[in-house]
Write a protein that binds this DNA or RNA. Sequence first.
RNA 1: GUGCCCGUAGCUCAAUUGGAUAGAGCAUCUGACUACGGAUCAGAAGGUUGUAGGUUCAACUCCUACCGGGCACACCA
Length: 566
Amino acid sequence: MTKGSGARRPIQEDLSELLAEAMRLSGQPAASASAARGTFEVPREEKFGDLSTNFVFRVAKENKKAPRPMAEEVAGKLRGLLAASAAAGRVEKIAVEGPGFINFYFTAQETASVLDAIRSAGADYGRPKDVKPKKILLEFVSANPTGPLTVAHGRQAALGDSLARVLQFCGHQVTREYYNNDEGVQITTLGLSTQYRLNAIRREHDPKLPENPPIPENYYQGDYLIEIAGELYAKNPNAGLDECRLFARDSIMAGIKKDLADFGVHFDNFYSQEALGKSGKVEKTLEELKRLGKVYESEGAVWLKSTDFGDDKDRVLVKSDKNYTYLTPDIAYHHEKFLRGFEMMIDILGPDHHGYIARLKASQQALGHDPDAVNVLIAQLVTLYEGEKQVRMSTRAGEFVTLREILDEVGKDAGRFFFLMRKFDAHLDFDLALAKTQTPDNPIFYIQYAHARIESVKNVFLEKNRELPWDPAVLDRLSGPLETRVLRLLGQYGDNVQAAERTLEPYRVVAYLMELAGAFHRFYAENRVVTEDAPLTAARLMLLTSVQTVLRSGLGLLGVSAPLKM
RNA sequence: GUGCCCGUAGCUCAAUUGGAUAGAGCAUCUGACUACGGAUCAGAAGGUUGUAGGUUCAACUCCUACCGGGCACACCA
């Protein structure tokens, strides 16, 4: 068996050395291969070749020379050097185009060699090689256990989970954590609201009891508390306030965990704020800040000097009634993240937390940590549509669309996919009607269908053959434009994954998969795969198998299934 | 009022973080099944990138001002 060409080093390495040498020959000193390497990119448009460099522009600027003639000269040297280099036979053409770009066009064999790489790497194909592994704490959802998860949490859950998958795929060590805000004012209000509902139920059973007053405005209004109070009534009709609080809190949290599990999202750890408080770590952190001289007392309250670290005003940590603000335990929590040895923290929050970022980072800097290690991603709001019609959402009177409803309506795959389709900092329009349809208009089906369709073709072949063929010698049969387009995209998978890792944006994987699926469908519409021509059949089956591998890998990064049949 | 985000084709969004003639999908119009899954594919049309300046070989991208939309500005969480 021949050794796969995927084991060869990336062609950029060879080309950057060549380029540096060509620059030297053209009388340009200080042109290092490493400087050249960073300038290579895959051109946006296919007609500009497989790889492109704008290196000449950068050098021309320093030397105040016209880029185009300089590029011509360098390209001439490159052509001369190519034959004797490691890249010989891999590059078909070197051309100067536009204002001075040098474009490299690969040979058909080089383009098709990606299939070898995919076959030998399998599920590992596309894993970036030059990513420095980090210990990352990814905190997301972290919804207060005062009500069921909403669509907004759904988006955060899909984003966080997919991001974790991308980061792990790139070699990072990721811990998924849910900060459980299980004590404090909101939970107290939850207890009161539950008690209110319990009283109402008690009165139904015993009309002699005094009538319930109208429900106070600041109480949680949702019907889910009536249900929970009903369960509590069955267990203990005379439950006191404390029992109401704990019962409702734990019952809601159990529901949240169920929703997350059904959405395919699991956490490594649920970090309890209550436990944090009891551990004394909040006091210790506060002491630490005092020792460092970052807090002061004024008007009976304790303030953090966050303005020293870029915040627009100082923040209260201990109120004049001696209670902590929300910020204080959260500072201790993030301090703990550093002490637990995490090098990078990612917090996914809703848009209402925008103003929170500066003070949180300031607090960590005050404690001597690197504020840039804390990455806060603000996931923008989701607007639901049913076709053209907007689905109204209102937190008023406890009316909102829950994640559970999304799950019931469109399912896990379509739900996750739609939440991931856009950049997280852009508003998301979620069309429930579209997510439910099984037509090519629906991008999730378009991609999954490509995967299932390939399986179906493979099965047609396997009806008459024992196993799928693999023969690198026939790869030159994949030279048409539609095949080339697919091959090129396959080669770009790793770059796209790495872009998702660098920008913390899983939507890049979504966009890539749509492109790959499209290129496959176009190829498939024009070409019959299983024919009498055995080498051609083999070559095309190799192409399809590789597409399937990459589709499965990419869908895996989104947490979306890759069905064999639909 | 102050700060942050956004403004790209009729609609929803891209544009490799400063690169080449600003690209897709939907919708519209015109086409393709004796077919391994038509649950698919091809073509046409659609733009002064909110406006006006600036920075440079090169600006949707960076800077300034203005216009329009969203969000945040608690001893709430």
